[in-house]
Amino acid sequence: MKTVFVTGASRGIGKSIALELGKDYQVVIGFSNSQDKAHEVVEEIKKLGGESLAVQLNIEDRNSVDQAFNLIEETYKHVDILVNNAGITKDNILPRMKDDEWNDVIQTNLTGNFYTSQRAIKKMIKNKWGRLIFISSVVGISGNQGQANYAASKAGLIGLSKSISKEVGSRNITSNVIAPGYIETDMTSFIDGENRENIIEQLSIKRMGKPEDIANMVSFLSKNESEYITGQVIPIDGGLTT
């Protein structure tokens, strides 16, 4: 059975991806702080008859990423499918943005995914099969007020993924980016009332997205049936970016 590693999988979109992929693969739940929630996801997958394991990792720290992969490889040999989902926000308008706010978001959302991807790709090259799936954001395509750091990090993932797709395509490894729009998670829970109505008004599909809308695409991209799709950016946003 193939092994999938989903970073930031204790809640939100990552959790939904982990539960969906738990139907087909052994799922490793990556978490940074929410140990209890991560173990709940593991239990939920097991209850549905799947195999799962939670590993703590601070994605911004290469040593922590290495340790997490060592642990995974002790139990499941190697990661076949890497879902780079972990990310943070530290919003501020540019004139007020502190160096720390910029650096922390870039380090976690972009550099952290470089660490995980580099570590995973070596085994994928050896196995001549692999899937890299990056969870970016429509903000990485369109930009957003108060999110220069976040948008830059999410746009950076697009360049990273496209480059990887060209380097390793000959080894049956694909790399793609999913760009979610407004999805109902903790990260977007501050959007309510009139703001929420205004957002929905801009969409072709008149509702906020669900984490499952993302998980379904991740599931498809993880499979052999998607082998001719690589280096792409797939917005899942109810028509926001048409």
Binding site: K122, I125, K126, E167, V168, S170, R171
Partner: peptide, 12 residues
């Protein structure tokens, strides 16, 4: 052997 092949043998 292409550049990726070299990487494979180096890792091996």
């Amino acid at each position: 052997i292409d550049s990726l092949g070299i990487v494979e043998v180096v890792m091996a």
